[in-house]
Nucleic acid binder design. Structure first.
Length: 554
RNA sequence: GGCCUUAUGGUCAAGAGGUUAAGACGCCGCCCUCUCAAGGCGGAAUCACGAGUUCGAUUCUCGUUAAGGCUACCA
């Protein structure tokens, strides 16, 4: 067959050659070893935690190598597009401190960089040109078969084929059409999809090096995969080859679900004579479902699959990033221990250190990482981040927090900014429960608001009414505690831990019980940070008020 | 059905042909302490199974099993 003639028949209006584009987008002028990487989400939903995970790899690697990290919007699936999803994805990247250097920056916003357009649906002329080229060299052919409209049909068809033939037919029937047949179809205005004329041999393999998976032996591709859909838009595989070539991508980071189609992508690169990029196929973040089965984080079922979830909950950006970094490079943890106050960005991140099994999302660990991160913030940072969060997600609390900034900072500074900082806040939404009593969010008139289970109310009242006369807000911490001890002693409580443990029956209780009573009266809670700090911040009037209030509880 | 990938405690995992098989989260205990958090100390808990290679295998090979993925004109 005369392929050049066929190319003209299929794409009469394409007047450019691929050389035009290859010249238009020349090799990037970058330092040695600089990597060019991208995040290329499809705007079919909100930015997935898995995307953030792979974006992190690209952002860290390009930062380290002085390369380029760009954003390309892969909006080639017209059916599944969701409004605004691209913009949100970009905003999320910026929010998580992974702002791309180049590319798409949101719908209707100017793009950055010389290698655009960075929106695939705006690149159809380019794809057409490259498609024509493949036809002209005999590596692509039109397929006029009717397509299946939905996933279910496709699945059924596949099952049918498996049952009838025991396998899946990968050589498309239309590859055998004669020029005349094709010409007739074109004349009849039949739509066609362009397919790859695969030359692969299923029994032959080639060697391949994946940055994460290491050396592999891969079977050649034999499938005549679709290059351009009948609507003129390419699916991922073809767009990937064209775009990553033109945009100069040097490393493609993608989920390992792409690994099986790698051979087909390489065959396309090969057909063009292009050098493929390096690849890093990442593991997929999973979670344990109700039945204790490991499965991929699902956008529909798992709130933590959407990166906005962490914002809503009030996890600081660094917490989420450090948690992801933990999953990616497990030696980060050790580094963090030795470099407590260095930015996670200074960690020498290595793609090769990424493990190859699918990690499970672990909230325990995230919380721990986050508590450590927050414990290193000073009171101003905490105040700033907490109020920024509350303004959006808990406006009532925001108003309370900002009413008296100095007071709020005093509260937030309890056990903070010292060598053994308090680690009780994992996310900003915790603060209300942890410190609500400092902001009048605890009702001293309601018995049910006190944690009183297992508490002797009579003893409690006795201690509290006694303490009203003892409390002096000008005492320093030691005096304050000595006074409590003296009072405890006079009421028949032990003030020596060992003595109490040896003969508890000799005492009404321990001085710790006395403190517990006071704590309940003042905060409603059995557990709280340092009582002395709390009383100092609340001031005498409030302390006395609380001590009086509890005596009225029946 | 075929193909691909993975398999070290509950979780994240380091690790190497010979190790008392790191470390972190979680859990438990003790210490400290006004409680909690933190901190200190300690504990329980792991090499999926079966063959083969080897003096020796958790590590290499092959099977089995399990889990995940792909097999779309989705990405």
């Amino acid at each position: 067959m005369d392929y050049k003639k066929l190319a003209e028949l299929l794409y009469p209006d394409v007047d450019k050659t691929i050389d035009y584009y290859l010249k238009k987008y020349p090799k990037r002028n970058l330092p040695n070893k600089a990597e060019v990487m991208r995040i290329a989400p499809s705007p079919t939903g909100y930015l997935h935690t898995g995307h953030a995970y792979s974006a992190f790899i690209s952002r860290a690697t390009t930062r380290k190598t002085n390369g380029v990290f760009y954003f390309r919007l892969e909006d080639t699936d017209q059916k599944r597009l969701i409004d605004n999803a691209g913009t949100i994805a970009y905003d999320m990247l910026c929010y998580y401190d992974m702002k791309p250097d180049e590319g798409y920056t949101g719908d209707n916003k100017p793009q950055i960089g010389e290698y655009g357009n960075y929106i695939q649906s705006k690149r159809l002329d380019i794809y057409k040109c490259f498609a024509k080229h493949l036809v002209s060299i005999g590596r692509a052919f039109p397929c006029f078969c009717e397509k299946s409209e939905n996933k279910e049909d496709i699945l059924n068809k596949r099952q049918e084929q498996i049952e009838n033939t025991g396998t899946i037919i990968d050589k498309d029937v239309c590859r055998n059409l004669t020029y005349e047949q094709i010409e007739q179809n074109i004349k009849d205005k039949k739509p066609f999809a362009l397919k790859l004329l695969s030359c692969g041999d299923i029994n032959k393999t080639f060697k391949f090096h994946d940055l994460i998976k290491g050396n592999r032996e891969i079977r050649q591709n034999t499938k005549d995969i679709v290059l351009v859909k009948s609507n003129g838009i390419p699916p991922y595989s073809f767009a990937h080859v064209v775009d990553d070539t033109l945009m100069g991508t040097t490393i493609v980071v993608r989920g390992e679900e792409w690994f099986p189609s790698l051979a087909s992508h390489l065959e396309i690169f090969n057909a063009f004579g292009f050098k493929p990029p390096k690849y890093a196929h990442t593991p997929v973040i999973c979670k344990l479902d109700e039945n204790s089965n490991k499965r991929k984080l699902s956008k529909r079922k798992d709130p933590e699959a959407d990166v906005r979830y962490f914002i809503e909950q009030g996890y600081p950006v660094v917490s989420v990033m450090e948690y992801l970094l933990n999953l990616l490079n497990s030696d980060f943890e050790l580094w963090r221990k030795n470099n407590a106050f260095t930015s996670y960005k200074d960690f020498d991140f290595k793609i090769e250190k990424i493990g190859s099994n699918n990690p499970m999302f672990d909230f325990n660990k995230l919380n721990d990482v986050s508590k450590n991160c927050i414990s290193k913030f000073n009171k101003d940072e905490v105040y700033q981040q907490l109020t920024t969060w509350a303004k959006v997600y808990d406006n009532d609390f925001y108003n309370i927090l900002t009413k008296d900034e100095d007071y709020t900072k005093l509260v937030l500074n309890i056990d903070r900014e010292n060598s053994k900082p308090r680690k009780d806040i994992a996310k900003w939404s915790d603060v209300k429960n942890l410190y609500g009593y400092m902001f009048n969010l605890f009702n001293p008139n309601s018995k049910s608001d006190y944690q009183l289970d297992g508490v002797d109310l009579q003893k409690l009242k006795e201690v509290c009414s006694c303490y009203i006369n003892v409390y002096n807000e000008n005492d320093d911490k030691q005096t304050w505690f000595n006074n409590i001890k003296d009072m405890a002693n006079s009421l028949g409580y032990a003030t020596d831990n060992k003595l109490y443990k040896e003969n508890p029956q000799n005492f009404k209780g321990n001085v710790s019980d006395v403190c517990m009573f006071l704590r309940i009266a003042i905060t409603g809670l059995k557990d709280s940070p340092d009582l002395y700090s709390i009383c100092s911040i609340l001031k005498k009037e409030k302390v006395v008020e609380m001590l009086n209030k509890i005596s009225l509880i029946k």
